[in-house]
């Protein structure tokens, strides 16, 4: 169905910019539109819907209307949709306009899908209707988009700025507000990769549960605060130290055991070409000595060394697998 509109000049004060029924775009990039309108004028007229109160609701062109207000224009040319245009037709206009005038980001797509879903008679209709507008969506994704739209502004902004993935943002939203806020702040300042974010959230939550200390308190106490706020270290180094500190807190026995293994290994002083490998997570009882050699003499020499190593206290300690108290 082609939506019919009429062109008319509309008083800017009559446009309700707080009515975001059809709003898809965020708030970024308005200043460049202000400059464009100042220099060239308003090329694409916003599309409005007349409300029963006589004021107008924006269908397309939120940023343009705001830019015109900033330029103190009293009225602007607009296209007003026919009064018989349904909500879903207006929303389709908004989505299409957003797609053709800009490259929609994740949040914009999420808003478009969530608003479309609210106007569909049945959820089953959503993938088909979204498809006609160039968006591929299934219901699990639509659910996630719905959550994304309900996120607090801080988290939405971090998703928009590519600091957080949608999944991580949703995971944070599932936590209590203080915890989510504290972790989001940490990620905003350190900008770890998605996999590091996942690891950090998991570690912080586990330590918090084990020690019965809120995450926000953990992050503002030693040793973590000293790492997070150490301006002498670059971002990557701080992330590395933070991960190491969290691992020690999360797995105290394993960390000490690994450290003790490394110390013993170092004390053994294995020569180049001979290495000792622990089983994964020290679960299997089988350790492996790897020996590089080029000829029989070298092999014999290293075999003698292996015999010597097998009698060292360090190897005996390694194989004992005794655990120290934390």
């Amino acid at each position: 169905m082609v939506v019919k509109t009429i062109e008319k000049s509309v008083d800017l004060n009559a446009i309700d910019i707080d009515d975001d029924r059809y709003r898809i775009s965020g708030a970024s990039g308005i200043q460049s539109i202000v400059e464009s309108i100042r220099n060239i004028g308003l090329i694409n007229f916003p599309i409005l819907e007349e409300k029963t109160s006589g004021s107008y609701r924006i269908v397309c062109g939120f940023k343009r209307v705001i830019a015109c207000r900033r330029l103190s224009m009293p009225s602007i040319p607009c296209r007003v949709v026919n009064s018989g245009c349904s909500k879903i037709e207006c929303l389709k206009l908004a989505v299409t306009d957003n797609t053709v005038t800009s490259m929609p980001g994740l949040l914009e797509e999420a808003r478009a899908i969530t608003k479309l879903r609210a106007l569909c008679d049945h959820d089953d209709d959503l993938p088909r209707i979204a498809g006609t507008l160039g968006m591929n969506v299934n219901m699990p994704l639509a659910e996630k988009y719905g959550v994304l739209c309900r996120l607090p502004a801080q988290l939405q902004q971090l998703v928009e700025d590519d600091v957080l993935s949608m999944k991580i943002a949703i995971d944070l939203f599932m936590l209590d507000r203080k915890t989510a806020h504290a972790i989001a702040g940490l990620f905003e300042s350190l900008r770890p990769t998605a996999s590091h974010q996942k690891e950090l959230i998991s570690s912080l939550r586990a330590i918090s549960a084990l020690r019965d200390i809120p995450v926000a308190e953990l992050l503002t106490a030693a040793p973590l605060i000293g790492i997070i706020t150490n301006d002498n270290l670059d971002r990557k180094r701080r992330i590395q130290l933070l991960r190491a500190a969290l691992r020690k807190m999360r797995y105290p026995h394993i960390s000490r055991f690994e450290a003790s293994f490394s110390q013993n290994l170092k004390k053994m002083g294995l020569p180049q070409g001979v290495s000792l490998h622990a089983p994964r997570d020290f679960e299997s009882p089988v350790y492996t000595f790897a020996v590089n050699f080029e000829n029989i003499d070298e092999l014999r020499q290293k075999a003698d060394l292996l015999k010597k190593f097998s009698e060292t206290n360090e190897l005996i300690a390694i194989l004992k697998r005794e655990i120290e108290d934390t």
Partner: peptide
Amino acid sequence: HGEFIRGLDGKMRYFKPL
């Protein structure tokens, strides 16, 4: 949130020395 590792059977189990 215990000190688990993935065991040889794929199950999570406490670190063996523990």
